[in-house]
Write a protein that binds this DNA or RNA. Sequence first.
DNA 1: CGACTTCATCGTGAAAAGCGATGATTTTCG
DNA 2: CGAAAATCATCGCTTTTCACGATGAAGTCG
Lengths: 309, 309
Amino acid sequence: MDFARLEFVIDIELRHLAAMAAIAEEGSFGRAAARLGYTQSTVSQQIAALERAVGGLVFDRPGGPKPVRLTPLGSVVLDQGREMLAKAEALADAVDRFKAGDGRIDIGTFQSVSNVILPSVVRRLRDEHPGCDIRLSEEEPEQPQIGDLDLLFYDGRIDGDVEHIKLLDDPYLLVADAGTFPDGPVPLEWLDGAPMVAWPLTCDQPLMEQAVARSGARPQIVFRSAVNDTLLSMVRAGMGSAVLPWLAIRGAGVPSDGRLRVHELRPSLPAREIYLHWRAGRTHSPLAGRAIEIAVEVAAELAPPPASA
Amino acid sequence: MDFARLEFVIDIELRHLAAMAAIAEEGSFGRAAARLGYTQSTVSQQIAALERAVGGLVFDRPGGPKPVRLTPLGSVVLDQGREMLAKAEALADAVDRFKAGDGRIDIGTFQSVSNVILPSVVRRLRDEHPGCDIRLSEEEPEQPQIGDLDLLFYDGRIDGDVEHIKLLDDPYLLVADAGTFPDGPVPLEWLDGAPMVAWPLTCDQPLMEQAVARSGARPQIVFRSAVNDTLLSMVRAGMGSAVLPWLAIRGAGVPSDGRLRVHELRPSLPAREIYLHWRAGRTHSPLAGRAIEIAVEVAAELAPPPASA
DNA sequence: CGACTTCATCGTGAAAAGCGATGATTTTCG
DNA sequence: CGAAAATCATCGCTTTTCACGATGAAGTCG
């Protein structure tokens, strides 16, 4: 922006333009003053200041009961001034809308994480703030970056200057074709050597597989895919079992699936933790603040009973 | 205009928005202050005032050498604020252009009056101010009205609250077919009973005809038209003579015409007076002021020698 | 931990805003 | 023609705001 060009405009005050507009409509300094809640002398001085700023008279004052009239310069100033006032009103409106919670919010979501949570959050947010502009981005770099996002869902901690809140613990469960294992909890060691399908080694997946390995079981990963439905189809096809977080299983509608069985693991694996992140030290928009609250609510409602299957 | 909506916006100053924009670009209050010619503490207080006005922080100040960043609210305010600043610049530009003489001017001209003067005035005005917007209107009510015109040419005085300047005396001359009269001045009484063509009875025409009548001569008006070329064609065709102002004769190119002769009248008739009018008490635009000067110049150059033919 | 950078705050003097009262000028009306 | 009314400008006056310089508080970096 070129600030040199603003040299004398900087002295123009919106108050003065508003006074000028009121005078132009009323035809009198005094009536304009009454309308604006000033005294006549104040308005007189405001116009004097404006005329000093633009370097010329903006009204001809005939004196007596004749209405004042815009000078040609005054017409120019008022034309442009009205546009400035319109922009000022637009600013006020935008600020009001922003405070009311409308506005834009950028949310990052990664991988299969929160394909259950996020839709509910978006739904409630849109219901509360029909005018809001919600943007989602699902990128998957090596290290998730908060970048310019307002909020970022991720199943793990993020380094950088970031604050976070844990939304829920998402326990790992075993999904297997009916008949593979007897109903009920499955000991972790049964997975040793078992054919399994699994997610790619991103996000929490490496940690989970390390936990399995630490228990001594060495399953045989026969297929990796990030697509849950594909994995579950493979399970149904007898290709192998899968250890998936509860959210992913629920999201795919497994409990109502005839061929699939869901088993708890014994001992249970460390649950995947779902976090919501945002940049530290940044002031939230009202919308972002509300989104965090909603995400916590949704997570609480979704939270699996500690030990049910 | 709705002034109630401006309640809190009225407290926003362009200075503060300019400071905000500079800070957003520089990333620092201090550098922005240096750029704007303020001290850091002043800029700090300006932003504080702006934040008071919009009711929320517009920058996050991380402290230390980290650059300050816009809050979400700040983004909203700055987006709108930049538009306000752009309008402010537009105002400054418009005022500058106006002062430089660009802008609009409305000029009224009546009847055949000033079909010689006005083109030269317009030409010079346009040469000096290529960007100017010149509007001419040629209306002919019973009483010419200044209305919203900046300038009004008329061959007589106008009542109302009007100032004026006399541009020139436009003497009446006799135009006749070659051979009708001997070369040289023609006594007014020779017109008694003579066939003549003439303008309609508007503007100065009635006054002129009354002057002729007062001299005792009673010419016979055989045709009236406001179109000079038509009148002169009739003179050429032997239909009759014409008493026309010098400007009209000059405008039609008569002196270079083979069949027509131009005679002075003895005694001469009171010259038609060409005035330029404008509303009293109204401040001129620079363009209007210059137009008046140019009109006077043009008139002076056109002024006929007192007694030549 | 100390040097450095950054913004906030404090105190001060000057400037300006806004007010009420008064003045000057013009129109209107008796 | 003169009195009344209406209008904007101006003059003190008080309160607020502006801008400054100096100092303080908080963070980063070596």
